[in-house]
């Protein structure tokens, strides 16, 4: 067995751990924050990501960028965190707020109002701020499933597997999350902008 000497002198080419915090700290933190909506927890996960990456640096094959590689590790940590949360609080979700959107016969109680042109809305910082707040306001499970499917673009099958939920459950969560997000944005005044 060839004894391997590890340490600062035998780093994988292309990785520069000393510069990780400076180069990627903020980006990873923002990514974690969008998924967790909790600064302390986001910080912890970023820290864990760096340490895990350091341990696994031998396995960095250089196929992705340093950032992409670190992000991949962070994504796993986020999924673990979601799973852990779900174990701790298995609440059944009977969504009164969503039910209230529709009448008993299933028709809209109050239909969606018109939105401004997305081209313009996307450039509007207030729209982005509202979106950020509304994402943070989604209830736990809906927020998690929505982030994995919509923000990360994961296959729904992978999300079901990762979170250990059924596909029926996933579709219910996505449906509710979209109804809620849309309504939340509208409530913040974006339904009534002049178009």
């Amino acid at each position: 067995m060839g004894a391997k000497k590890m340490g600062a002198d035998t780093l994988q080419p292309g990785l520069d751990p000393q510069a990780w915090v400076k180069r990627h700290g903020d980006a990873l933190f923002r990514y974690a924050l969008v998924h967790l909506h909790d600064r302390a927890q986001a910080q912890d996960l970023v820290q864990e990501t760096f340490l895990a990456a350091l341990k696994a640096r031998e396995r960095y094959a250089g196929r992705s960028s340093e950032r992409g590689w670190l992000l991949g590790i962070l994504k796993h940590k986020i999924m673990d965190e979601y799973r852990r949360r779900r174990r701790e609080q298995p609440l059944p979700e009977n969504d009164r707020e969503i039910d209230a959107l529709f009448l008993d016969n299933g028709r809209w109680r109050e239909g969606p109002s018109a939105w401004p042109d997305p081209e313009r809305a996307f450039e509007d910082d207030r729209f982005i701020a509202a979106l950020r707040e509304c994402l943070a306001a989604l209830p736990g499970r809906q927020a998690e499933v929505f982030a994995l499917v919509e923000l990360d673009g994961l296959e729904t099958k992978a999300v079901c597997k990762g979170l250990k939920i059924t596909s029926t459950n996933l579709w219910v969560m996505m449906h509710r999350a979209r109804l809620r997000l849309r309504q939340c944005i509208e409530r913040r005044g974006f339904g009534r902008l002049p178009c």
Binding site: G7, A8, P17, Q18, W20, V21, K22, G25, D26, A27, F29, R30, Y31, L33, V34, R39, Q43, V46, Q47, F50, L51, L54, K55, F122, I128, L131, R132, L135, L151
Partner: peptide, 29 residues
């Protein structure tokens, strides 16, 4: 929207947190 959420928004690591991380990394290294 994805890019805007991830890129801008003025969110960054608190300086103490960043320093702490650097120390831990250095230590592990």
């Amino acid at each position: 929207l994805h890019r805007k959420l991830m890129d801008q928004g003025g969110e960054s690591l608190a300086p103490e947190a960043a320093r702490h991380m650097e120390e831990r990394l250095q230590q592990a290294l």
